[in-house]
Amino acid sequence: MLYGDGTSYLLSILIVLLGFGVMVMFLRWTFSSGKSVVARRPRTGGENEYGLFVPVASPATMIEGEQQRLQLEAGQVRAKLVQTTDGPRVMVFEKDEKIARTILAAPPPPPDVLR
């Protein structure tokens, strides 16, 4: 007898089947659809589809929006300029909305102050 008694033979078959089962589960998880770990391509959404961000300004152009974003950054408010389906928007977190609107309502500083 090659394996001695029957228990070691049965144990080796169970180990092989267990390893095969683990490989099948891993491959099933790897090639399943709809649960990709790769990030999706970003898409343009409406101004209300940006989670915790709220729009505080609707600039006419991206250049004007970038100037407003820089004005907010100079005022220590984190801001983002995004292209939405409604046009460019300057977005901030909800908690910073009141401060951002106050900063944007103030006249812009002279150009040499921003340097």
Results as ranks from 00 to 15, higher is better:
Ser12Thr: 10
Leu27Asn: 15
Thr30Ser: 10
Glu49Gly: 08
Ser36Phe: 04
Ala74Phe: 06
Leu52Ala: 15
Thr102Asn: 13
Glu47Ile: 03
Met62Ile: 03
Val77His: 08
Leu52Cys: 07
Glu64Asn: 14
Leu27His: 09
Ile13Ala: 10
Ile99Ser: 10
Leu10His: 07
Gln67Asp: 09
Asp5Thr: 07
Thr102Lys: 15
Pro107His: 06
Leu18Glu: 10
Ala105Met: 11
Arg41Cys: 03
Leu14Cys: 15
Val38Asp: 06
Met1Asp: 05
Asn48Arg: 10
Phe26Leu: 06
Val37Met: 11
Ala100Trp: 05
Leu70Ile: 02
Gly75His: 14
Gly34Ala: 11
Asp86Pro: 00
Gly6Cys: 03
Ile63Pro: 00
Asp86Leu: 02
Ile13Tyr: 05
Gly34Thr: 10
Leu114Gly: 00
Trp29His: 04
Thr44His: 05
Asp5Ser: 09
Leu70Gln: 12
Gly75Thr: 07
Asp5Lys: 03
Gly4Met: 05
Glu64Val: 05
Ala106Ile: 04
Val16Thr: 13
Glu94Trp: 07
Gly87Ser: 07
Gly19Glu: 07
Val54Trp: 00
Asp112Tyr: 04
Glu66Pro: 01
Lys80Thr: 00
Ala60Cys: 04
Leu18Thr: 12
Pro111Glu: 04
Val113Tyr: 06
Glu49Cys: 03
Thr44Leu: 15
Glu47Asn: 08
Gly34Ile: 07
Arg69Thr: 01
Thr61Arg: 06
Pro109Arg: 09
Thr61Gly: 00
Ser58Val: 02
Gly34Cys: 11
Gly21Phe: 11
Ala74Arg: 14
Thr61Cys: 00
Thr102Gln: 14
Met1Glu: 13
Tyr50Asn: 12
Val113Glu: 05
Leu27Arg: 12
Val90Ala: 09
Val113Leu: 06
Val38Thr: 14
Thr102Ala: 15
Gly87Trp: 10
Met1Trp: 10
Gly4Glu: 01
Arg28Lys: 07
Ile99Pro: 01
Ser12Trp: 09
Gln71His: 14
Val82Thr: 10
Ile15Gln: 15
Leu52Tyr: 14
Glu66Tyr: 11
Ala74Trp: 08
Val82Arg: 13
Arg89Gln: 10
Arg40Glu: 09
Ser33Gly: 06
Phe53Met: 08
Phe53Pro: 01
Pro108Val: 00
Met62Trp: 01
Pro88Phe: 04
Ala39Leu: 11
Pro88Tyr: 00
Arg101Val: 08
Leu11Tyr: 12
Gly65Asn: 01
Asp112Val: 00
Ile103Leu: 15
Tyr9Trp: 14
Tyr3Glu: 08
Phe26His: 02
Gln68Thr: 02
Gly21Gln: 00
Leu11Asp: 05
Gln67Met: 14
Ile103Gln: 08
Leu11Phe: 08
Gly45Leu: 12
Val92Tyr: 14
Phe31Cys: 01
Ala100Gln: 03
Leu2Ser: 15
Gly51Ser: 10
Pro110Lys: 13
Pro107Cys: 11
Val24Tyr: 09
Glu47Gln: 13
Lys95Thr: 04
Glu94Pro: 02
Leu17Asp: 05
Thr102Glu: 12
Pro109Leu: 13
Pro107Leu: 11
Val82Lys: 12
Asp96Thr: 02
Lys95Pro: 00
Thr84Pro: 07
Glu49Phe: 08
Met23Asn: 11
Tyr3Ser: 11
Thr30Arg: 15
Met25Cys: 05
Gln71Asp: 07
Ile63Val: 10
Pro55Cys: 02
Thr61Met: 00
Gln76Arg: 15
Ile99Gly: 03
Thr85Pro: 02
